[in-house]
């Protein structure tokens, strides 16, 4: 590929994307620049519900996976474990495809799954249908289980590597000065881990926010996440629906881009102190 043509080829999907969302389509009987598909999406109640649901699921998954992952990394540091075998155990969920984990979660936690049948067989419930709804449920428990299964080890691995790069003696020094392990974690290690956690939070949020297959397979019929909503509109034969699908994709991309910008700005603020004249006001 010639270097001169590379930027145009890279920008081509974006151009195509935008032309479709603003009404310039190929092969459809709609034409002309318009914002009506965006407005139609933004004024649609289902879109608002989807947006709130998607943000909520992504936020909860991000919060729990980062808190859980950081806590696991601290525990590993404290217990002085972290050898090759521990890394392999943590890598396993990370490299396992989401689709496989989704199927596993379905087979274990659905009302027809292993746990439901086991509890029924053990006599804890009279019928497998009495097993709590954990898949296709309103609170997205099944979706969350998939995200957490993959994201907690990912965050733990990244945080553990960062913690190992931070002198382990900070912990000794902190406790020697009279701090409790909690104080050492929150006043020493957590602030030092802030840039790493910001990065893992962005990655986990972006993934949960943009994921399609997990909420599509395990989500409740009562509400849909934005990627699922976009997909269902996309396979609709109505050309307007396809344009709205593209509009939703643009909105998802815009939110993701906005988050990336917020992240880079926040990182600049965090690192600014270290690279300034060394004085804090």
């Amino acid at each position: 590929m010639k270097a001169a043509s590379k930027p145009y080829l890279l920008a081509a999907p974006l151009v195509l994307f935008l032309t479709l969302t603003f009404g310039l389509s190929f092969g459809y009987e709609i034409s002309g620049l318009t914002l009506r598909h965006f407005l139609a999406v933004l004024w649609n109640r289902d879109f608002v519900v989807s947006l709130v649901a998607t943000l909520s699921v992504a936020a909860v998954a991000t919060l729990v996976s980062n808190v859980g992952g950081a806590a696991l990394a601290f525990a590993m540091l404290k217990a002085r474990v972290g050898g090759e075998w521990v890394r392999h155990i943590l890598q396993l969920p990370v490299i396992m495809p989401h689709l496989v984990v989704t199927v596993v979660v379905f087979h274990i936690f659905a009302q027809t799954g292993v746990l439901a049948r086991l509890t029924w067989w053990l006599g804890f419930i009279d019928d497998p249908n009495q097993f709590p709804l954990m898949v296709f449920d309103h609170f997205a428990i099944g979706i969350m289980l998939v995200y957490l299964y993959k994201q907690i080890p990912f965050v733990a691995m990244v945080c553990f590597d960062s913690l190992r790069g931070i002198s382990h003696r900070f912990g000794d020094v902190g406790e020697n000065l009279g701090a409790t392990p909690w104080q050492v974690a929150t006043r020493v290690y957590l602030p030092l881990l802030k840039p790493t956690l910001m990065a893992t939070a962005l990655i986990t949020f972006a993934f949960a926010f943009g994921a399609f297959e997990v909420p599509f397979l395990l989500g409740t019929p009562l509400w849909r996440t934005l990627p699922v909503e976009a997909y269902l509109l996309h396979i609709n034969i109505d050309p307007d629906a396809q344009a709205r699908s593209m509009a939703i994709n643009v909105i998802i991309s815009a939110i993701s881009l906005g988050l990336a910008l917020v992240y880079s700005s926040a990182l600049r603020v965090v690192s600014h102190v270290r690279h300034s004249d060394g004085e804090r006001p």
């Binding site: 020094v173 406790e175 020697n176 009279g178």
Partner: peptide, 9 residues
Amino acid sequence: STRHRQAII
């Protein structure tokens, strides 16, 4: 424990 020993290093 080191926290309560007041032997600072």
